[in-house]
Design a protein around this nucleic acid. Sequence first.
DNA 1: TAATGATGTTTACATGCGTAAATGCTCGCG
DNA 2: CGCGAGCATTTACGCATGTAAACATCATTA
Lengths: 123, 123
Amino acid sequence: MAISEAEAVIMDVLWREAPRTAEDILAEVGPAQNWQEGTVKSLLNRLLRKKAVHAERDGRRYLYAPLLTREQYVQQESKGLLDRLFGGRVAPLVAHFSEQRKLSKKDIAELRKLLKELDDEQP
Amino acid sequence: MAISEAEAVIMDVLWREAPRTAEDILAEVGPAQNWQEGTVKSLLNRLLRKKAVHAERDGRRYLYAPLLTREQYVQQESKGLLDRLFGGRVAPLVAHFSEQRKLSKKDIAELRKLLKELDDEQP
DNA sequence: TAATGATGTTTACATGCGTAAATGCTCGCG
DNA sequence: CGCGAGCATTTACGCATGTAAACATCATTA
């Protein structure tokens, strides 16, 4: 089962720092997201069921930590999109953003650097 | 309201060629997707409600054509992912695929070409 | 010890999605 | 003219999601 968008918000908090209590998570995510305590608890439980996080008892509360890594998640998500929209190839995706003028100077510079590194890697 | 994945399959058919009848669409998509007639009709109706396609009567049947363009759709989808996963910036995304060794020779060549074109464009 | 507060667990409910069956409408044929 | 074939529209149903209220549990304190 896939991680939903709301669930991913919780994961994000845990990826930034873990383990964390539900209270911590609520504090960090509640205001921005306008979520109540119950909402966060529910999401945590669904993530537990999906084996995406692990909970360890710590006295009266639980400490939650991610099981699914951010890398894994990003991998799944971006591969899905890439396959669906760009035939699984990266260049067309970048071309798309390029056409939309969505490449910043910084992006371009970094891309250039990246390509150079690839050059050096396998001469 | 967003276009769902199943709906996007229908859009894909219409983007390839339009206008088309429901029958055409079923013929093209049914076998691969294992969808019945009713399924395609439902999806078409949801797309109508979402104003993503337009239907024009043609005798006893309808001809369906996309209103939402593929460009618009790709734009929405990829921007969503980019924002959620890579802080809205393209370079980190490419770096991600690079780390995963998901850049083909061809990708690299095309990226290089793309960057060169950007160079020439604004000297 | 009984009430209170802190936590977690269960249940709920509206909405959207995937999938399709049931129903409705209309045109041409017998 | 009434009927069936061909389409479209409505309704259905189970499951995921977003959001949260209700309920359960247990330690602490009055």
